[in-house]
Design a binder for these strands. Structure first.
Lengths: 292, 292
DNA sequence: CGAATCATGCAAAGACCATTGCGAATGGGC
DNA sequence: GCCCATTCGCAATGGTCTTTGCATGATTCG
């Protein structure tokens, strides 16, 4: 990007990379350092190692490969750079005027999230997380553009070790899935803006089968509220015509985070298994040693 | 509240002081915490003790007097507060302390978005939006949990009247799609945390075919940067193990908003057409009347 | 195809850090 | 003026974190 402040942290870090390039695992560590500066500057080497999927020793060695005495020395530098990148931006934020549609959109999302942060009752999320954790399986129904939220929720919840599936493939699949629901299951209906008929139907049907039903929506629709045990209200007003997914995703993220905290051992094991699988399938791109 | 950031940090800290007041040495410690937040959030208890001219034990006891289990617990809170005070800017961190995992996740997303809002160069989004608007078609490549971002982007962009498709169905489909790309097309690669091999490959292949390539990522990997005309950097640090999608979604949202502004007439017509179609298919749940 | 080099995980060692029990000193109350 | 309560420093203890030696598995070059 054109702004020098953005680059300070990353560029400085990457400039430390020796000519020879970095070993694969060291590159993985570097990626974590760049992408998670907060954690990098506060966390321990062990924490970073877990995040990078490497051994603790590799973190220390990476720090040494970057020209530092060890991890603490590197971390001290990271702190300084990270903090200055934060406070430097502070100044620039002021004179960011009304600006382009994109920046207006961002600002609105920021506001929405602030509102959400203030209003949201965390007890509700806790209830839902515990329900999902206890459920035989969980079905997420999400239609339209909010299918993305449903997918994200299901994906990460599975990563956390819970059988959560998103249904976005249309009414026939939805019907089949709902038909198999029972009292041991949980259904999460995600619907914004205007409610989709099929989502509402599914929620009611599931409720009548004894399934625990939760809803995530932007408008307190009586139709959905009647079917749901709890309704999470999320601001979804977008700058343009489309509703904003940002707040919805944030809630999904919060829910999964809460879910991961219900049974840390289970989640840890699940993530570990997933990592092993990724490695086996060679899915991840570890940076090549000499940057071509 | 003219200076919300200073207030947030010290006011919160001072509010923790018990009724009974503080012992002289404890007050000295508190003064150091307030006046040197940076050192307080990073340093050890011993360092703080020296600064306050007290013994190490007093630091620990002060932390306990403030209602925390010990120094590490207090420090963790200080970090969150201090960083927020640096990054939050217009958004005052309203919510109370550590709280549940879910509320921590929300607060972190809020911070990320604030950072994003400040750092993001809107010119880049404008460039991408115009490229998409001018393209014959646009392909969004997104893997893993970030498939959700890709889907949201593609969905809303289509709604805005542009031929944007997300590829999330695996490598074979990706290969087919990339094979059909040409200089009139645009490819947007979305990849976070660790890059997926296939995403990087697709970006390089597309680039060599003359397709305009853009990237949305949390770590400026040389592998992706080399293939991309512009790289949009997004904070994706999550509270738990998973990366947060929130900032990514916000960028997607901003991009679509910008796209919708390129040719308002086209977008308007497209949305109208979509509405008519929904009505014809009876997809929407218009208002109450609980079924059954 | 074999050997050497290198990277990386494992585990032990060493250092550092936070906490708490104990004792000394100080200040207030009787 | 004496005694008791409170505060704070000292030092020991238990735990955590970083580093490094060693072994193993992978990769490359001959």
């Amino acid at each position: 990007m054109t702004e020098p402040r953005t680059d300070t942290y990353d560029e400085w870090l990457r400039a430390r990379v020796p000519e020879r390039g970095l070993r694969p695992k060291a590159a993985a560590v570097l990626d974590v350092l760049v992408s998670q500066p907060r954690r990098a500057s506060y966390g321990s080497a062990a924490e970073l190692a877990q995040l990078a999927g490497v051994n603790v020793a590799t973190v220390t060695r990476t720090a040494q490969a970057l020209g530092f005495a060890g991890w603490p020395a590197l971390q001290q530098e990271l702190r300084a750079r990270y903090l200055s990148s934060l406070s430097a931006g502070q100044v620039a934020a002021e004179h960011a005027g009304a600006g382009s549609p994109s920046s207006r959109s961002l600002r609105r999302d920021l506001d929405s999230l602030a509102v959400l942060n203030r209003r949201l009752d965390e007890a509700v999320l806790l209830t839902i997380a515990e329900a999902v954790a206890a459920a035989r399986r969980t079905v997420v129904v999400a239609d339209g553009s909010y299918a993305a939220v449903g997918l994200a929720l299901a994906h990460n919840a599975r990563l956390a070790g819970y059988p959560v599936a998103a249904v976005t493939a249309g009414d026939s699949e939805l019907a089949n899935v709902v038909a198999a629901l029972g009292p041991e299951d949980v259904l999460i209906a995600i619907s914004f803006w205007r409610l989709y008929e099929s989502t509402v139907l599914a929620a009611h049907e599931a409720r009548s089968r004894g399934t625990r039903v939760f809803a995530l929506t932007d408008a307190a629709s009586p139709a959905l509220a009647a079917a749901a045990e709890e309704v999470v209200m999320v601001p979804a007003e977008g700058e343009a015509f489309f509703p904003s997914l940002t707040a919805g995703i944030a809630v999904a993220q919060a829910l999964v985070t809460q879910l991961a905290a219900v049974d840390p051992a289970r989640t840890g094991a699940s993530i570990e298994a997933a990592e092993a699988m990724w490695a086996k399938f060679g899915l991840l791109h570890r940076r090549p040693a000499p940057p071509s």
